[in-house]
Design a protein around this nucleic acid. Structure first.
Lengths: 149, 149
DNA sequence: TGTTAATGATTGTTATACTAACTATATTTG
DNA sequence: CAAATATAGTTAGTATAACAATCATTAACA
């Protein structure tokens, strides 16, 4: 029965594709929902705001680590968020290379306003997946992630 | 027992993040492997080449559909591949809006040369996942994908 | 048949991502 | 302490991606 091996290889061939395809669509979907709600922020900007809310004021290095974005990307996203007055950069008194980045009041407000949009998008994305399936998906994705460290 | 609901919500909160994180790292990893092998192509360029090899000569619209990229993105990737002489655009005699895009001999050669690199990268990515787990992962990702159509 | 609509491809704009190089500041170490 | 190194952040260049607008060509249909 020579079909087992080819089938496995075939699955491996398409899985990366399916992974990327799904991640791409999810990003696109969340972005579209934010646009529909006239959020005036992108999903990546949202991710940075979220890191700041959950982690409090922090350096750009910390934000990069938390969000899995690299330093130049964080710089530019913060530039945009600063223009929109959703975050502020303050000099770190202990280390003059660093900034302490924090949400402004407007930044907090933006998160309040957009949280329902994000929650609703999450519900749609994971519709039909039960608790076990969610856990399995996360476990398998983490396994792949660890494989590529 | 008020912990069940919050836990589910928490999982949904991080899953999108884990999905994007894994997809990003996979892309990064494949790209790094190609760079290491001095492939002189990116992973997205590889994906387009692969579509051309498996599907034969085809229009840019078909390439876009196969690769889940949009038309402008395909245009620009093909521009780069054409510069590198890995693909060629020929006028479609039946429809003057279209090109027939095909791999050149050099394009075929590039694929021959890089296939082992890609196969090796796939092996690393899916290491430790058995047949069932691969199938489950694909099934769950497809479910999410369908949710967002 | 002639106007309208749809399609294939391109161009422009904005945003994210990676690499590399650069500035400024901190840390290590000889 | 001084020189070498490391770290935080920025800037520049290239690639990918989404979206909108545009252009040429083809298809639909009144």
């Amino acid at each position: 029965m020579p079909s087992a091996l080819p089938k496995l290889a075939k699955t491996a061939e398409v899985s990366g594709f399916i992974l990327e395809r799904t991640a791409k669509r999810m990003k696109q979907f969340f972005h579209a929902q934010l646009t529909l709600a006239t959020a005036d922020i992108t999903i990546d900007q949202w991710i940075v705001l979220q890191a700041l809310e959950s982690g409090g004021a922090q350096s750009q290095f910390e934000i990069a680590r938390q969000t899995f974005k690299d330093a130049p990307t964080v710089t530019r996203i913060l530039d945009l968020l600063e223009q929109k007055q959703l975050i502020s950069r303050e000099d770190d008194p202990n280390d003059r290379r660093r900034y302490n980045v924090r949400l402004t009041a407007q930044g907090h407000q933006k998160m309040q306003d957009m949280l329902p949009v994000i929650k609703n998008a999450r519900q749609q994305a994971w519709r039909g997946l039960d608790d076990d399936e969610m856990a399995t998906l996360v476990r398998l994705l983490d396994k792949v992630y660890d494989n590529l460290k």
